[in-house]
């Protein structure tokens, strides 16, 4: 008998439509961590919220598997659903202005406290990157997270977000430029580049 690990995503999804719980279990193992990380990045680093959203997404798969178009790529379909869930959450939070997720003031304080001496530390860069990601608009953020945190291809991102590949590339490059301006003092690689440049000189 063929092992479920050898099935493609779409084959497994077909089995899930037929109420095969083992196929569902296999799909969960493949994508639960990826989705949880995505939600974590997209939803203000809130681990509990990320878990809840990931569970909700898989619950939707159980309850309405027929909504999945078997001609589509399962991964991109799942991330498009996840992205829509995040959009809805952003809308909810935008209605609730001045929530704990409105971290602009916090960023400002940290910016002021940031020391140039700590700029080479990875941890600081990571923290700064996280903060800067939060300042991005939803479209840039989702594209960037999918690309650099979920290792999704340009094509997959284009499918998930229903965009052209060129638009995805353009959006990514524009976001990179924006982040570079705000992160250039913190990037560890920047320090290496600078050291390299000094050494060459």
């Amino acid at each position: 008998m063929r092992k479920y690990t050898s099935y493609s995503d779409n084959e497994l999804m077909q089995l899930v439509v037929d109420k095969d719980s083992r196929a569902f279990s296999e799909l969960y193992d493949r994508y639960s961590q990826m989705l949880a990380n995505y939600f974590f990045k997209m939803l203000w680093q809130d681990e509990e919220k990320a878990q809840d959203f990931m569970q909700d997404l898989f619950t939707k798969i159980i309850e309405k598997p027929h909504l999945f178009d078997l001609k589509r790529n399962f991964k991109t379909w799942m991330f498009s659903v996840a992205n829509n869930m995040c959009k809805n959450e952003y809308r909810k939070q935008s209605i609730r202005k001045n929530t704990s997720y409105d971290m602009d003031e916090g960023y400002q304080i940290k910016d002021n406290q940031a020391s140039a001496l700590d700029s080479l530390q990875d941890s600081l860069f990571s923290e700064k990157l996280t903060q800067e990601l939060e300042l991005l608009d939803e479209k840039q953020k989702s594209t960037f997270v999918m690309r650099y945190f979920q290792d999704m291809s340009i094509k997959e991102i284009a499918q998930a977000l229903d965009l052209s590949e060129g638009t995805v590339k353009s959006r990514l490059f524009y976001t990179l430029k924006k982040l570079t301006v705000s992160l250039k003092d913190f990037a560890p690689q920047m320090a290496k580049v600078l050291l390299l440049l000094i050494g060459l000189n």
Partner: peptide
């Protein structure tokens, strides 16, 4: 060079990122 440094740093950070 700055863009490259930032991108490499992001790649490094993302690879080191702990799973939820």
């Amino acid at each position: 060079s700055e863009l490259r440094a930032t991108l490499l740093s992001i790649k490094q950070v993302s690879s080191d990122e702990e799973n939820v």
